[in-house]
Design a protein around this nucleic acid. Sequence first.
DNA 1: CGCTTGACTCGTACATTGTACCATAGGATG
DNA 2: CATCCTATGGTACAATGTACGAGTCAAGCG
Lengths: 227, 227
Amino acid sequence: MAAKRSGTRSTRSQRAGSVPQPRSETPLSLERIAATAVELLDVHGVDGLTMRRLADRLGSGVMSLYWHVDTKEDVFDLALDMVLEYRGQPQAAGTQDWRAEVIHILEDWRAQMLRHPWSASLLPSRALGPNILYRLELLGKTLSGAGVADANLNVAIWSLWNHVMGATITRASFDLSNDDQAAAQQRLHLSERYPTIERSRLPLDNDWDGVFRKGLDFLLDGLAPKP
Amino acid sequence: MAAKRSGTRSTRSQRAGSVPQPRSETPLSLERIAATAVELLDVHGVDGLTMRRLADRLGSGVMSLYWHVDTKEDVFDLALDMVLEYRGQPQAAGTQDWRAEVIHILEDWRAQMLRHPWSASLLPSRALGPNILYRLELLGKTLSGAGVADANLNVAIWSLWNHVMGATITRASFDLSNDDQAAAQQRLHLSERYPTIERSRLPLDNDWDGVFRKGLDFLLDGLAPKP
DNA sequence: CGCTTGACTCGTACATTGTACCATAGGATG
DNA sequence: CATCCTATGGTACAATGTACGAGTCAAGCG
């Protein structure tokens, strides 16, 4: 993941400010690579991110990337983690309303992923980066502080994780393939095998945010510690 | 998706039985392509399915596949739909216990996806095939029969969908990258940023099936029509 | 019978991808 | 000056999806 033999990376960036661009442009760095990858992913989607495009956009040669990164997969990890950074208040310690706090944590997480629709589908298949771990830590701490017993903590966290991921992946995917939706509903019309979901216009009428909130409420009702 | 100009496919297979293998081997067909793709996906994963490998396994030339299929994406759609076929009882019409029935439908769906771990992560990004639509129809009909009002039907279906997909995608992905888990827990150790989730051994100790069932119960509690 | 047509198969070729290998440059250190 | 480390990047290669067009066979028709 790191530069060739770990150790001290970017001697230059430590002495920030001196000698603006020693070579041709600003030097490469994991931060710049990650940020540019996010841009490309936002515009072109997962398949649109190629090492060549990334290098072009960075004004560097393709192989220069490979000094900072072992593999294209690393680029995905970096971009994903960058997108999941948590910018929150310092967390008012013993908040009285734990439920509102959990909802805030999860909605912020979801909103962040929806701003970068590629991220949701990528998250489950990659190792957990520091930023998503931090979000989970926050969630766990809040639940724990709310009185959820240790024995139930993992169940609670994973239930909420599943809900967030399921809702977000589904929503992000449906947004992407928007054109096909009319066709999908059309196809329903042709077959009398699906009367119920045709009547409910399932693929079309969707209050995604409402579904997310309601499902979340149900889960929290069930997970809440009984006094 | 279909053969070159739709119309009558596989003139040969209609007159089944006569002339066993007219050419060299058994002829190609969407069914054979789909079934073989499933085999390859099961063994080699999503990235391991290549058109060349598929053709080899089928004993055909690569380009022959493209008479039956427009694109590799079609192969994924076919494989996915094949895997999601519902083999269920004819559905005892007005069952008394709708809750058990919903749970059965969803657990069967989930089990089917877990048997082919690539399928879960593929499903959200592809158009809804006939077999998954049929499963949704069954689910919708059951809920509707249980008294869920039409206005709440889509919310109920999507909530359950989200739960199933989130739980299954997460579980399937974690199973695949099993090696990294020890490393993941190890990395937690190095940082004091994540005391809560380290204490709970979140990435390791998981009763996936239990989480699925409990979350499902909570959702059904909330979704159940109030009398 | 020959001729045409349409269903089906497949070899060749090409553009695009990730990345291995190697040459190079410049600053730091001896 | 020599030596090493950090960093850049050109060339080359193997793997992939698939466009193109040529080929084969059976059925239908004169």
